[in-house]
Design a protein around this nucleic acid. Structure first.
Lengths: 189, 189
DNA sequence: ACCTGAACACCGTTCAAGT
DNA sequence: ACCTGAACACCGTTCAAGT
């Protein structure tokens, strides 16, 4: 609050005339970003199949989060969801409904996708942070399989030494895995 | 820190003799929980196929997080990963390796699973928090598809009014979607 | 070796008082 | 209507001083 007020050329206490508490400010920021996501998603043209359209929408949403890298962390802390986020999911429900999914299946799908539907995943651990070369021998011995995997991947693709792990390709792999799986279930709906 | 010290019957400042900063305490807690997860995973007996074994391990890990519901939130805030967590993933790599996966495919798989491999998912929004009946008409009109979906699901399964959405079934659905997808790819490795 | 009191630099927030 | 200074109740952390 104090920092935000300074940025605005005012005192921290002045903020409390416009807003009840800090949480409300954060909720507002989430809303702004979510609107930006909705705008981006609305600009993708829809094709004949739900899967392609969903994929393009989600990748468009992802672009917004790539521009605001602090946003996923913020979204994760919010408990009550913003109206704009709900509208995004609402549109996804409509899209799947049009292609024959049952409500029950869509419900499962939303849970399975989680934040991936919005275009981001929170990486729990970044296996690439420490390149295999930097790992002290002592810990490497306790992680033979992980270290083996990482060293082979680094070897195969030496260009990506900085970030050997291509986040975009990674995201698309996981996304397609889920979308394809859901599409297969659709045929039974 | 002050609260923790009180719980221990000491002053907050005493903690700093044993630990450098608060973050180290949190890292330690993560380690303890992760060891608990490793113990649980080690107790499941491995079957002939990687998929079944992975599934049982992950569901055993999940039990640990169900006992410590604050843990997922804690894990999400950590940036550097604990050794114990890495060991858990190392074991997963070994399991998939034995069943013919390439290193590259395993790498993708770990990213696709994310925290689900450890047995939990961070729900970005809980569509069930507000039962459809409680939703004010004004917002319901802006979310026709979501409200329609939720009301039908609530109608189909009136027993689960409190938590109409069965987390365990939800988790297993998403997990199987990914494991099945990966298994199909394995046949091409 | 282990603990503590006093103190510092931060927070978010309240409220009576200013213009 | 909008802003502010002083103040409160919290944080994590340091450090010299205690036993």
């Amino acid at each position: 609050m104090r920092r935000l007020a300074e940025e605005l050329g005012a005192e921290a206490m002045s903020l409390y005339y416009h807003v009840a508490k800090k949480e409300d400010v954060l909720d507002g920021i989430v809303d702004v970003v979510a609107e930006e996501v909705n705008d981006a998603a609305a600009r993708v043209d829809s094709g004949p199949d739900w899967k392609g359209t969903a994929r393009r929408r989600i990748l468009a949403a992802r672009q917004v989060f790539l521009r605001h890298r602090w946003a996923p962390g913020l979204f994760a802390t919010r408990s009550s969801t913003s109206m704009a986020v709900l509208e995004y999911y609402d549109n996804l429900v409509a899209l799947m409904r049009e292609d024959g999914f049952s409500h029950d299946r869509i419900h499962h799908a939303l849970h399975a996708l989680g934040s991936r539907a919005l275009g981001f995943t929170q990486e729990l651990f970044d296996p690439g942070t420490g390149a295999s070369a930097e790992v002290p021998a002592e810990v490497a011995e306790r992680l033979p399989n992980l270290v083996g995997m990482l060293s082979e991947i680094a070897h195969d693709d030496p260009d990506s030494t900085l970030g050997w792990c291509d986040d975009q390709a990674e995201f698309e792999f996981g996304l397609d895995l889920i979308l394809d799986g859901l599409d297969r279930l659709r045929e039974r709906d």
